[in-house]
């Protein structure tokens, strides 16, 4: 699962940041697109596994799935695309123009307050 690589990647960033600000990380938010999606369950498990034994152990990971916008080539409707049901909401056609899919991002890290 590529979730393992994602987990390792964010863990090293969080550890490095935590060292720099000298604080205990308690949560992080990551985001992904629709084509480039993460599986929540697999992602959480991969992160727990990677974080075990580090200061990141027990952190909560929030995964934000950013919608993908598509415009129907037949009727021009723009809507949130469901990749598992690829038909136009309006006219049921299946030809679209896509906006770029959201990248994998580490958006925020939350640290415990009062421990500077």
């Amino acid at each position: 699962m590529h979730e393992t690589s994602v987990a390792e990647s964010i863990l090293s960033t969080i550890l490095e940041t935590a060292g720099r600000v000298n604080a205990q990380p308690v949560g992080a938010t990551i985001s992904c697109g629709q084509f480039n999606a993460l599986n929540d369950e697999v992602m959480n498990f991969a992160f727990e596994t990677a974080a075990a034994g580090t200061v990141c152990e027990g952190m909560t990971l929030t995964i934000r799935h950013v919608p993908l916008r598509a415009t129907c080539r037949q009727c021009g409707t723009t809507f949130e695309f469901d990749i598992y049901r690829p038909v136009c909401r309006q006219c049921s056609s299946a030809e679209f123009v896509f906006k770029p899919d959201a990248p994998l991002l580490l958006e925020t890290i939350e640290f415990k307050d009062g421990k500077e």
Partner: peptide
């Protein structure tokens, strides 16, 4: 304290 990074994951691969 919340830090906003908005940093690409897998940046090493990139």
């Amino acid at each position: 304290m919340k830090l906003s990074l908005n940093q690409k994951i897998l940046s090493r691969n990139e």
